[in-house]
């Protein structure tokens, strides 16, 4: 494992912890998109089916369990926790799941490496992960007032995706290893979705003002 991959995993882990910490300690999920969290839960549930069939390493299994556990507990908090659920802004978080899930399903059926159930679910999860942040980005743009923790959560997620790209580039030059083009394109699309957010995040950081996205 190279440094970019490890840093990517760590920022991913940090993003999830920041979000759980916010929800658990402040008992608020204001500004957090339940739609995005449900999509991530679906992404991990379809991608990590291999924990039952393959063993890669303790690190790999532990990380998969953390991402599965955290995404489902965040969904549980927002839907079921008697205090947290009150802070959920349903009126603003209106993005439709099927608008993203159906095209990804269709794309996975059309473009994949192998036509097996496990492979199709993996490909579907790659496509869905690329766009799962969209409801969260739309919500941020609508609410305007972004609290620090939500801003950091999205920033860390974007950093994780950028580091994965660097990891693939590094592996290409050091190991001559080609990541499959499906992974490449989905990864690039996903990273580009954060470009706009990154711009405003750095601007607010540079000028030391509160993060606000333009309407």
């Amino acid at each position: 494992m190279n440094i970019f991959r490890l840093a990517g995993d760590m920022t991913h882990l940090a993003s999830v912890l920041v979000l759980l910490l916010k929800i658990h300690t402040i008992k608020s999920c204001a500004g957090v998109s339940l739609k995005t969290q449900e999509l991530y839960a679906l992404v991990f549930a379809t991608r990590y089916l291999d924990i039952f069939t393959d063993f890669i390493s303790v690190y790999n299994t532990v990380m998969k369990l953390i991402f599965l556990g955290s995404s489902f507990s965040i969904v549980w908090y927002i839907r079921r926790h008697k205090i947290v659920r009150r802070s959920y802004d349903k009126e603003q978080d209106t993005f439709r799941h099927y608008f993203l899930v159906l095209p990804c399903l269709l794309l996975a059926l059309l473009i994949h490496e192998k036509f097996t159930v496990k492979e199709l679910l993996w490909t579907f999860s790659i496509y869905l992960e690329a766009v799962a942040i969209l409801p969260q980005l739309v919500l941020l743009q609508r609410t305007r007032n972004i609290d620090n923790l939500t801003g950091q959560y999205v920033f860390l997620l974007g950093a994780y995706r950028s580091l994965y790209i660097l990891n693939w580039i590094y592996r290409y030059f050091t190991e001559r290893h080609f990541v499959h083009w499906i992974t490449w394109i989905a990864g690039l699309v996903q990273t580009l979705l954060y470009a706009d957010f990154f711009y405003y995040y750095f601007e607010s950081w540079k000028n030391n003002v509160k993060l606000q996205l333009p309407a």
């Binding site: 494992m1 991959r5 995993d9 991913h12 291999d50 393959d54 890669i56 390493s57 790999n60 990380m63 998969k64 991402f67 994965y164 592996r171 290893h177 990541v179 499959h180 992974t183």
Partner: peptide, 10 residues
């Protein structure tokens, strides 16, 4: 053949 590196990525 299986791509072990791909399987390792999260």
């Amino acid at each position: 053949e299986e791509d072990l590196e791909r399987k390792d990525e999260l």
